[in-house]
């Protein structure tokens, strides 16, 4: 009797390729990532730790060689649900990538960070699939609530596009914070860990933001940097500034999430001022943009 041959499961075929490409040191880290995988090797949100093994290689190179990240305070990130609140900068979201990489390479045990991505990401071919496979999810409040209830680590940038696309003259000054993250933290009783990222501001100093052109192209911002759009797409490559990533002590706020705006804004202001002082500490500690 012949047994009908089933196709080899996706995951097995891939890991053989990953075995050859990715050094054991990184694969061990990726293997320790906790995931609630279903029958098809992905979690219910489409996250696939195998794909993370692949991306660990370029990410580790960026983290260790290109941006030469100095990370402090990872012991402040608890094991349960946590909301990482960072300052967003640098025109392209390398800051989010580096925070996520730090949590994989330097934290023990490593943790996957779920960042709340912009709403237009699921509309983009390939990008949408890649983001889903590496655990990044559209930033709707429902998704965030659900993931926090599953005790995940979520990265948010309450400044949003305002932060990442700000011009060079406003570097290291926090833009207005949204309050949605605080309401979710209160509702789900989640500790907030402020994450200060120093160095990302200088990777692509924006001289001007051509808002009308951005609107025409349907993108959130159109920065003019010394290299972009002058050098075309190559001008998007960030400068190799040194990153300093500081994880602050967890902040816990008491409430239910349906408080008056003034109360919530007060809590947000506390997070914002803590983050600002951590940024200033980072700026004092560094001796130069590239050092």
């Amino acid at each position: 009797m012949t047994v009908p041959s089933l196709p080899v499961p996706y995951t097995r075929r891939r890991s053989r390729l990953a075995d050859r490409l990715v050094p054991e040191r990184l694969r061990a880290k990726a293997r320790h990532l906790k995931a609630n995988l279903g029958e098809m090797g992905v979690d219910p949100f489409g996250y696939d730790p195998e794909v993370v093994q692949y991306t660990a290689l370029p990410l580790a190179w960026l983290y260790e060689r290109y941006f030469r990240c100095i990370t402090k305070g990872l012991e402040n990130v608890p094991d349960g649900r946590v909301l990482l609140v960072g300052n967003h900068s640098g025109q392209l979201p390398f800051d989010a990538m580096m925070v996520a990489t730090a949590m994989i390479l330097e934290r023990d045990p490593p943790r996957i960070v779920r960042s709340m991505v912009e709403k237009w990401v699921p509309r983009l071919p390939w990008v949408s699939v890649f983001f889903a496979r590496v655990g990044q999810i559209v930033g709707t409040p429902d998704n965030c609530r659900r993931l926090l209830e599953l005790d995940e680590a979520i990265l948010v940038f309450p400044e949003g596009v305002r932060g990442i696309s700000k011009t060079f003259d406003r570097r290291y000054r926090l833009e207005r914070f949204g309050t949605g993250f605080m309401r979710l933290a209160l509702e789900t009783h989640t500790p907030i860990v402020p994450v200060a990222i120093v160095g990302a501001e200088e990777q692509a100093p924006s001289l001007h933001n051509l808002k009308s052109l951005a609107k025409l192209l349907g993108i959130p911002a159109f920065p003019v940097t010394p290299t972009f759009p002058l050098l075309g797409p190559a001008g998007l490559i960030p400068l190799p500034t040194r990153y300093r990533i500081y994880f602050g002590e967890p902040m816990m706020f008491e409430g239910e999430g349906d408080e008056e705006d003034e109360v919530v804004r007060g809590f947000v202001a506390q997070v914002q001022s803590r983050l600002q002082s951590m940024i200033e500490l980072g700026l004092r500690e560094r001796r130069g943009v590239f050092r």
Partner: peptide
Amino acid sequence: PGEAPLSRILEV
């Protein structure tokens, strides 16, 4: 019984 990406369903 759970969710799966379309590509893996076709692969099965």
